[in-house]
């Protein structure tokens, strides 16, 4: 099944690209994300919770990024599974500057769903996925627009990330320490101040901090920081945990 959407974010494209690469942002905005850690070149392992209709549960899996064309597009591949079911999806993400200095983010997802979650009906899955995706992107929009990260509860974690002002004030050596729940995120995900949320990122071409690029053992041609890949893909993964299926429901119903 395919779902797609277009959302306009207030921040310009470069800041969006940057924001999407900032794990602090991502952990504050991805609905239901509980954990993420590097798993190899261009990929991450994630753990997230999602609720579709009355089926609530945890999913774990892997996401990876490919076909990147900074700053305008990339493809995510997600594979996740949990008690409620399994998700396998491929998402094309595009960023485009608009005339007013905003950014238009469009996503096209193609997903296959199996397990219990496949039984809720295509429209429920579609609708739920779209809602999660929209929640995520609008949270990112809020954060980038300067709204406090405080008050942005992390779905499923019960934790609230501190406001951006605090984060800009201190060297964010371990910014995620305040954000990350019980399961610690490896320090490798620490992001240098250069990619802090509060900083304006006038250009799209954000230099990849060496510290970050060394963390995730990025694929040589990846321009996007591994953290970006991880973060965005984790967000998409939890978003797509509810993405509607194509033929799997039919096949399962035999």
């Amino acid at each position: 099944m395919k779902i797609s959407g277009v959302v306009t974010l207030r921040a310009p494209g470069g800041r969006v690209w940057t924001g999407l690469t900032d794990p602090a942002v991502l952990l504050a905005t991805i609905p239901g994300c509980e954990r993420l850690e590097p798993a190899g070149p261009g990929s991450c392992r994630f753990a997230a919770r999602a609720k579709i209709a009355s089926i609530e549960g945890s999913y774990t899996g892997e996401v990876s990024v490919s076909q990147q064309h900074e700053p305008s597009s990339f493809v995510l591949t997600v594979n996740g599974a949990g008690a409620p079911g399994a998700v396998s999806a491929s998402v094309q993400v595009r960023l485009a500057e608009t005339a007013g200095g905003s950014t238009e983010l469009s996503y096209d997802a193609d997903a296959v769903i199996g397990g219990l979650i496949a039984g809720v009906g295509r429209r429920v899955l579609c609708s739920a996925a779209r809602r999660i995706a929209d929640d995520f992107v609008s949270s990112v929009d809020d954060v980038l627009a300067g709204s406090a990260i405080a008050g942005n509860a992390i779905a499923g974690t019960g934790m609230v990330s501190p406001p951006p002002a605090e984060r800009a004030a201190e060297p964010p050596a371990e910014p995620e320490a305040a954000l990350v729940p019980a399961t610690p995120v490896p320090a490798a995900i620490a992001v240098p101040a250069a990619v802090s949320v509060a900083a304006a990122a006038p250009s799209i071409a954000v230099p990849v901090p060496a510290a970050v690029s060394s963390i995730a053992a990025p694929v040589a041609d990846i321009q996007v920081p591994a953290a970006f890949a991880r973060g965005v893909l984790v967000g998409a993964a939890s978003a797509l945990a509810g993405v509607a299926l194509a033929g799997l429901i039919e096949r399962r119903a035999r």
Binding site: A53, V120, S127, A128, R130, E250, R254
Partner: peptide, 22 residues
């Protein structure tokens, strides 16, 4: 057919339309 308004009804298990039928 827009089901988004129904998603938050507690105890909702599934909504099926023609496209779901094998």
């Amino acid at each position: 057919i827009d089901v988004s308004g129904a998603l938050d009804v507690p105890g909702l298990v599934a909504i099926y339309t023609y496209e779901d039928l094998p």
